[in-house]
Computed example of a mutant assay.
Amino acid sequence: MSDLIILKLGGSVITDKGTDCTVNRAALAGIAAAIAGAHAARIVVVHGAGSCGHPEAHRYHLDKGATAGETDGIYVTHRAVSALNEAVVSALREAGVPALGVHPLHTGVADNGRLVMFESRHLEQMLALGMVPVIHGDVVMDLSRGACIVSGDQLVRYLAVALKCTRVGLATDVPGVLDGGRVVPEITPKSAHTLQIGNSSHTDVTGGMKGKIDELLGLAREGIGADIFQVSRLGDFLAGNDHGGTKVRGE
C-alpha cells in the first residue's frame, strides 16, 4: 500500500482573500491536474476557508463561541465553507480524481477551541476504496464555547496522527516560511522562537502563518514532519522531489 499524504490547500491559494467568497478556479484546475497525476499516492485533501468563511466567522465572532439564540453565524459560516468545498470537489472530479467532500461540522467535536474528537474510520474506508476525502476548515460544536472555528491546519495535525500519515504538505501562495524575505529551509521546535513570522494581512480568525507553524511544530513533536511550499511546486512535493520550501521537523 502506498504512503498516505495529507495535502493542505491554503485558503489564499484557492480564493481571492481580498474579496468575499471569490473562488480561484484557475488555481483549482492546476491543483486538480497535479493531484490527478499523482497516481500512486493515497491522498487526503484539507483546505482552508480563505474568503469563504473567515469574513463570516469574524462578523459573527465565532472565534469567541456561540450562545443559545445567537446561532445564525454557525449556519452562515458553514454554508460559505461548504460552498467552497463543493468547488474544490468539483474541480478534482473534473480532473478525474474520485473526490468526496467531508464536513467537520457533522463529524467533529471541540472543547475550548481544540478538536477532541473527529471520526476517521469512514475516511479510512474511503481511502481503501480509492477515494480522495476533501475536508475543510469549519464550524464545529464546542463543549465549552457552544461552537468554534476549527482551522484546516488544526485538522491536518489531528488527522495526520489519527490516520498514521506518512507525509504532510501545505501548498501556499508563498514559496515557504519567510523570515526577512528569505525562505527558511527548516524549522524545528528549538529554532522556531528565533523567527519573525507574521500573521495574514487579510481577515483570518485562525492565526495565519504563525498558526500553521504552531500546529506543525506540535505535529513534529509527535514524529510527523511537514513541508510548506508554493502551490506551483505541488507536483514536486507529490513526487517526493525538492520543492524549494520549508521543512518543519522534530529535533
Rank of each mutant, 00 (worst) to 15 (best):
R145V: 14
P133S: 11
H243I: 14
E119A: 13
A87C: 04
I43S: 00
E119Y: 10
R93N: 06
T246M: 02
G225F: 08
I74A: 00
G130A: 03
C21A: 12
I74M: 06
G96S: 05
G73E: 00
S232Q: 14
G207N: 08
L129H: 08
T71A: 12
P104G: 06
H103K: 12
H103I: 14
G50W: 10
E222V: 12
D138L: 00
P104L: 11
A91N: 07
R182E: 15
A87S: 09
T246P: 01
H103Q: 15
G10K: 07
L216C: 10
L105Y: 14
A171T: 05
A162F: 09
E119L: 08
V183H: 08
G30Q: 13
V97W: 04
A83V: 04
V132T: 02
T77A: 01
A192Q: 12
G137Q: 04
A38W: 00
T67H: 07
P55A: 07
G245T: 08
H243Q: 13
F229N: 03
T15N: 05
E119D: 12
T194M: 13
G218C: 02
A40I: 14
T194H: 11
K17A: 12
A95W: 00
I31G: 01
G223A: 08
V46Q: 01
G101E: 05
G73P: 01
L219F: 10
C21G: 10
S200V: 05
I224D: 10
A57M: 10
F237A: 08
E119R: 01
A226S: 11
A29C: 13
D72P: 00
G53I: 09
Y158Q: 00
K17E: 13
L129Q: 13
V76R: 05
L105F: 14
V150K: 10
P133A: 03
V81Y: 02
Q154S: 12
R25D: 13
P133C: 11
A226W: 11
G152S: 09
F118L: 13
A38V: 02
L7H: 06
D63V: 11
G207Q: 03
